[in-house]
Design a protein around this nucleic acid. Structure first.
Lengths: 340, 340
DNA sequence: AAAATATGCTTAAACGTTTAAGGAAGCAAG
DNA sequence: CTTGCTTCCTTAAACGTTTAAGCATATTTT
């Protein structure tokens, strides 16, 4: 039960494979194929249920119509959602998606890039891990089209899609200030990645702009790889000090979730004892007894933009890079309390 | 800056491409390649940074070392987690994963299967949508290896990995009974899919076994495509009737999340006014003010099993099908209250 | 009526691999 | 000195497409 190939159709129709190819790829006009025979070929193709072999086509054309997606972790809903919009958008353009999770490790990411390139992906959409600059430079040297999403490296000239992390963070903190919070803490990942730095900067500048000293002791970090321990320590420090924090701004959804678990454990009441605000949306935040106010990243837009820019880069190699920065929205729930 | 091919290495070494191929695929022994020249070839390959063209290899071998994964929705953490374990396990076996989301639609699923097969995937891991039996039969007729995960069709003889949905549901309901709940409702998807039927059956038989009449009016369903409206209606019906439900068993995590949102909206207190139990784990359930008791499906085991069985089927076509049924665990939190 | 153009098809090479088959050279055995 | 066996390498076909080039035959133009 072998698959049907052009040759089978050609034999059945008593013509050459070339003719079949022309007809089935709708090049009848250019190839001046007779109407009769074209109809016959189509007929036979349908009857034999011909399905083109994409691999052979790719080998010939040098294009696989496949894009590689590297995220930190596909099981994280933020990346799952990104993957979903990229999948849909890719499909609209007749592309399929191969994916891989880097776990924020540049070594794993190296490995993934290699695997995906050997599979001849036409381009990559990457959420780069910390320390993966060399890898991106290599891609550039090889002229492989790629687009960064969620983060980027300022020193690397490459197309990227991000949200305005600085403004987003600023909005979040200003919201807390408006709600009368006096000692606003922040918990971020311990990383030099630019999106996190920008969120930190937004936090700090918002505080300064409103006359608060952005005391270092209120900005805590946790390691991705030791999230639980570091988170507990950070929260303990924020809440046990002489000047207890009365608000916490989490830099990402995974931080918020981990943090809230511990805050629940400690029996701290939101928003009375502590206001909470975070980047990113997730079901968990909706379901919290006191729905969490958050900074929304428009994931569908980001995903669509990523695919669009990547395909442009694939199809028009000399188009130049594109930086897309999308605004965030502050979605106010109840976790910051009322004005006081 | 074209990619380096076997031919380039052959030219550089002054030998034929065949020899290069033998060496680089470690077939020196069988092909009796001279030590000297083998070393030289390897050396050159390294220097030119040769990366094999997977597409060409696939065309020749008829195998792509790619598996297709079709889930209902990659952005749902349950499927995201499945995807993640499958990704990892596939990678361990030098396979990559192409994925697609069917949105529980058999038409979309048809489409996806087609796309993935044209990409010459070696096999498929599928969470089949309702009404997709014909598609699976077609795959069987074409001798395409595939494994079902999460659900299956009893009338179709195919390998599948599931959990013991019947026992899982039974455990959940019995837990509620032990906690003294008298009117236990269930909300499931409106579907004939077997895993859901089994959960319903577990629910009903548990009730009967303990002398409760499994009154139809306590078993509600919601459409995947109209989740929000149907959910609100179902909960209203369960809670507004003369015999108000004092417990709800949700058949999946997405149902639980949607349901809990509405329960929150209505201001119903868990577990005092209403006990909650659900299938599947998710962060949202942990973070709920009253952590939700749930039936855990061992996702990593399921994913690993799926890859294992699929690869067996790919490599030993006459091995026969395999049915793997994994036990669930009841994870008790606080949402069912204390005994009363 | 010869030349030019149009029409409808085939041939053959190419993409980058893999691998069966073949061949030249060297050497041992008869 | 033929025969046969190693050893080491090459040739060439194949996988399923795409597509430039070529070749008849028919039709139009001069």
């Amino acid at each position: 039960m072998k698959k049907v190939s052009l040759k089978d159709i050609a034999t059945a129709a008593g013509v050459s494979t070339a003719l079949v190819s022309y007809v089935l790829t709708n090049k009848e006009k250019e190839a001046r194929v007779g109407e009769e025979i074209a109809k016959k070929i189509r007929e036979i193709a349908r009857k034999l249920n011909y399905q083109p072999n994409h691999i052979a086509r790719s080998l010939k054309s040098g294009r696989s119509f496949t894009i590689g997606l590297i995220v930190a972790d596909i099981s994280n809903p933020f990346f799952g959602n990104i993957a979903r919009t990229i999948e849909d958008e890719a499909k609209r353009n007749n592309y399929t998606v191969i994916f891989g999770s880097s776990d924020e490790s540049s070594a794993k990411s190296d490995d993934l890039v290699n695997v995906l390139l050997n599979r001849q992906v036409d381009g990559l959409i990457i959420t780069p891990a910390e320390g993966s600059e060399h890898q991106l430079r290599q891609l550039q040297a090889q002229n492989i089209p790629f687009v960064l999403i969620d983060r980027f490296f300022p020193e690397i000239m490459a197309s990227h899609i991000t949200v305005d992390n600085y403004q987003g963070a600023k909005k979040a903190v200003e919201h807390l200030i408006r709600k009368g919070r006096q000692r606003i803490g922040m918990i971020a990942y311990k990383t030099t990645l630019h999106h996190i730095s920008e969120r930190k900067r937004g936090y700090q500048e918002a505080l300064q702009a409103h006359g608060f000293s952005a005391s270092r002791s209120l900005l805590k970090t946790a390691r991705y790889s030791h999230l639980k321990e570091d988170m507990q320590l950070a929260i303990d420090q924020l809440l046990n000090s002489r000047h207890r924090a009365d608000a916490i701004f989490f830099a990402t959804n995974s931080l918020a979730i981990e943090g809230l678990k511990y805050i629940n454990e400690r029996g701290i009441r939101i928003p009375d004892e502590l206001a909470i605000i975070t980047f990113d949306e997730t079901d968990a935040l909706d379901l919290f007894y006191c729905p969490i106010t958050f900074v929304r990243q428009p994931i569908p837009e980001m995903g669509k933009a990523a695919v669009r820019v990547l395909l442009e880069q694939i199809n028009q190699p000399h188009k130049g890079i594109e930086h897309i920065c999308i605004d965030t929205t502050l979605v106010v729930r109840k976790s910051c309390g009322k004005r006081r």
